[in-house]
């Protein structure tokens, strides 16, 4: 059986968990192609008008998988930490897609809600496993392998690799060494993984910064222990999982005296980000750390992002007397 996984949204967080899980169950995993203009155009055509660009892109990725898979993996992710929930669009994702795109194959839309208890992840995976096999041991084995691979993946992230680099590494590629150049600017780029690590939708933001010789750190690289500590620091946390991650990561990096600035990448029209963005801005202000918001949408024009990011880097360099 061929299982299709769209290469966006939770893909960047969980792919190393899903992949060995399905493969151990004997399925073939097929991932949609890397985001591109055609995919996005397709997504825009198929999505309700008010959605943000990541959701539109998700529809495009689903559409690209239609004829290539027997079953589509599109779980309803509700809570990943037992406290916060994901953005409402994640909660309604399977429904939104089902009523927007015709001719879909069978869908795995099991609900993952860790508010129901720690065993919920096992119940969730077991429930999916039953669709592939009646062999209980086989499912348990798949869960074990998935969790093992996922743990390795997280370790790579904490070493400073981006998810995409870590994926390549887990597939047998060589581990890229994260070298620190002496005196390089250190910028925290915060935002949701599906925007940050998708080179198309971020208009190559991370690549660009590295080309300017900037050391880039992101929320995915912050250790769990630190996230947990910071989750108790704010007077009140946000309702949304990814938004909390972004805010905590920003605060974590602001504790670093060597940090030169923070870039917040946000999708135009993102509701949760109206809060996230303001909180980060205020935190940066209090610490007197340069801050900039880069907003992305369906446009493919690089000029806006290029100008802002280049100016941001330039002005920090001038400030530090590096020019």
């Amino acid at each position: 059986m061929r299982v299709g996984i769209p290469r966006t949204l939770s893909y960047f967080t969980f792919y190393p968990l899903w992949k060995p899980f399905f493969e151990t169950l004997g399925a073939e995993v097929i991932v949609s192609p890397e985001s591109n203009k055609e995919l996005l155009d397709d997504g825009v055509r198929n999505t309700v008008t008010d959605a943000c660009v990541p959701i539109k892109l998700f529809h495009g990725h689903v559409a690209a998988l239609i004829d290539k898979v027997d079953i589509l993996f599109m779980p309803r992710l509700v809570s990943l930490d037992g406290k916060s929930t994901l953005c409402p669009k994640f909660l309604g994702l399977p429904d939104m897609v089902k009523y927007s795109i015709a001719g879909l194959p069978e869908i795995i839309e099991n609900r993952l809600d860790l508010k129901k208890g720690k065993m919920e992840l096992y119940r969730f995976l077991y429930g999916i496993g039953r669709r592939f096999t009646a062999n209980r041991l086989k499912i348990m084995h798949a869960i074990y392998r998935a969790k093992y691979n996922f743990a390795n993946y997280r370790k790579l992230l904490f070493k400073g690799l981006t998810p995409v680099e870590a994926f390549a590494c887990l597939e047998g590629g060589q581990e890229p060494s994260v070298q620190l150049i002496d005196g390089a600017l250190k910028l925290a780029v915060v935002g949701y993984p599906y925007n940050l690590y998708d080179n198309f939708i971020s208009i190559g933001l991370l690549t660009k910064l590295r080309r300017y010789g900037v050391q880039v750190v992101t929320p995915e690289m912050v250790p769990d222990k630190e996230m947990k500590r910071l989750s108790k620091k704010l007077r009140k946390n946000l309702f949304w999982y990814y938004s909390n991650q972004v805010v905590w990561a920003a605060i974590y990096y602001l504790e670093d005296k060597n940090l030169d600035g923070i870039i917040h990448l946000t999708a135009f029209g993102c509701g949760p980000d109206s809060m996230t963005n303001k909180i980060i801005e205020l935190e940066c202000k209090a610490k007197k750390v340069p801050f900039i918001t880069v907003s992305i949408d369906e446009h493919t024009g690089e000029a806006g992002v290029e100008t802002r990011v280049e100016a941001f880097v330039d002005l920090i360099k001038r400030k530090k007397g590096m020019v």
Partner: peptide, 11 residues
């Protein structure tokens, strides 16, 4: 004499 902050109109 040092730029400490800047902003540009969005879209």
């Amino acid at each position: 004499g040092v730029v400490v902050d800047f902003a540009m109109n969005t879209v």
